[in-house]
Design a protein around this nucleic acid. Structure first.
Lengths: 336, 336
DNA sequence: TTGAAAGCGGTACCAT
DNA sequence: ATGGTACCGCTTTCAA
């Protein structure tokens, strides 16, 4: 099929030569240019030539000429965990494609905020939608905008100067969890803080929300570190009684399941001795006994976010908006 | 920060003017060109000017000039499920970046094989590593190679003509699971087939492996459709006894956990009446009682795959190789 | 209806 | 040590 002898990549010049027309005509035909009328026979010749050569236009050359792209760049450091994010992500990509954008995820693992922004800017995306795993600085936002990005949108716990912010206030999750526990009469509440790196952007605001909620009713909140391993959970369970807590909000359902099992193995009754609540409403949480209470998060739909991206791209003039996008509500089951 | 009045994107010409040098010098300095010697004061002036302007080179223009890119494109349709894939994915991205590649995931949801290949080819990636969620055709491979891709690597259940194939033979998973069940003395084995779309590329070969393994010992294999919902699991459990099966390999741990719980709720003893085994070795599987047996999959490390990509890019001449990359072995716990 | 030509931003050869 | 310049592939204006 493909010879080593470096077959040259076919260009529009090759197509033109093969079809016996000029490069201009090739461009007109292949882009269905409305402004000019090209005869049907010519169109066919051009298309055939392009097909036979396996011609594919060079996106870089095109963007160089036109001065813009239709690329929406989604930075991704850790691929987002959980079905919540992946559903959202897929929706967003699908909706953006329908709006005729090219959606590209840029793996930015191991890049700092400004370095990442520079790397993204090299691709001249028309929009950047950051899910907040990588911390975008105000300076990074500026670099992107100077490089031609019409829309820089952050979707995360905090807003960033200069960017349109879709604030997913993670505090609401911690708040919802702890409020529920307090309603259940709990007063000394542990909040699991995952030890895994990269989760701080989520766990910190969740803790803050938990604190706020507790402060309002004079309850006590105690951060509890936990790694996502059985050993770590067992160790925590072993010293659980000494902590004197009567409830725990365990970051999300996965950590909650892990901890709940460890507590049970230690002979601690859930929810009798200790209430447990997670977050994300994973199906698996319903399989445990007692069924895991959780906080359900209502994320913005990918569809709506795609529409916002498109609106900002078309009219970049507007002031950076701030939207609150997340609703969180406790779903009591049996573990609390 | 950013005015509506369309501030022009700074180019190397702007940097040159501001630094009082030529564009050539700017290029030399910013790329640390070894061939030419530029005085230190000039270097500083150029760098300062670039900084002040927020200059970021245009990747498209660069690739146009140089005739190649360092982009490795990873098509992604459904973001891969499970910690196995995401770990692998992150490793791969990280390792490729260390080799100085730009890693980009291209969301291809809703594109057919050839359309997708064309879309990818427009970006002129130097390599494409397809995880097999999108079906790459031989023609698609050819389009990519003609557009300059040095390496087209498929990582999936089947090989594709023209591409280097890293065959992850999913059959081994089904084979490992069913062999284990047969060793345990089981003879009538259900194989869960997820009803969710997009999983067929994985579930079909797993079933084939299960069949192959069963045929060798005269055991019976029965495909059992199951959706990832509690209702579906309950319905299946309700008619379980009528199926007359004494074991089930449930695609992966998530489906296995779901089904095991439903069977238990139906009063069916696991593993007494029915053995259950999953795959992927999720931590959560160990939290259930009985602990879930599973098949652990040893995927190629991202590091090694990155090295292969790099090798093929540097020496594209070689014949498409075929590597077998996956080892699978049963991890018996308590459910089988 | 079609073609010639300029120019987008960056690189690298060849002069100076 | 630095500058002038041709060229990469594509689009689009203008002329024929």
């Amino acid at each position: 099929m493909s010879q080593p002898p470096e077959r040259a990549v076919p260009t529009s010049t090759d197509v033109a030569r093969r079809a016996g027309v000029s490069r201009a005509t090739v461009s007109y035909v292949l882009n269905n240019a409305a402004a000019v009328r090209i005869s049907e026979p010519t169109r066919r010749k051009v298309r055939e030539a392009a097909d036979e050569l396996g011609y594919v236009p060079h996106a870089g050359a095109r963007s160089l000429r036109s001065g813009h792209t239709r690329m929406v760049l989604l930075p991704s450091a850790h691929t987002p965990v959980g079905p919540l994010y992946s559903t959202f992500f897929n929706e967003l990509q699908w909706a953006l494609r329908r709006l005729d954008y090219t959606v590209v995820q840029y793996g930015s693992l191991g890049l700092d905020g400004d370095g990442a922004a520079r790397a993204w800017a090299e691709l001249r995306p028309v929009a950047v939608v950051s899910l907040g795993e990588i911390s975008l600085t105000p300076h990074g936002v500026d670099v992107l905008k100077r490089s031609g990005a019409k829309a820089v949108i952050t979707l995360g716990p905090q807003r960033v100067a200069g960017a349109h912010a879709l604030v997913m206030d993670q505090r609401e999750i911690g708040c919802g969890a702890v409020s529920h526990l307090i309603e259940r009469g709990r007063r000394r509440i542990g909040v699991v803080m995952p030890e895994e790196p990269g989760l701080g952007l989520f766990s910190q605001p969740r803790l803050a929300g938990a604190r706020a909620s507790a402060a309002a009713s004079g309850a006590h909140v105690e951060p509890v570190p936990l790694a996502y391993t059985e050993q770590s959970a067992a160790a925590l369970a072993a010293r659980w009684r000494s902590l004197g807590l009567d409830a725990v909000y365990a970051y999300n359902d996965e950590y909650a399941m892990l901890l709940m099992r460890a507590l049970q193995d230690e002979g601690i009754d859930v929810p009798g001795d200790t209430s447990v609540i997670g977050a994300d409403d994973l199906l698996l949480g319903r399989l445990l006994r007692p069924r895991l209470s959780t906080v359900r998060v209502d994320l913005v739909t990918g569809q709506r976010l795609a529409e916002l991206v498109d609106r900002v791209v078309r009219d970049p003039g507007g002031e950076p908006e701030r939207h609150d996008l997340m609703g969180a509500r406790a779903v009591p089951r049996e573990s609390s």
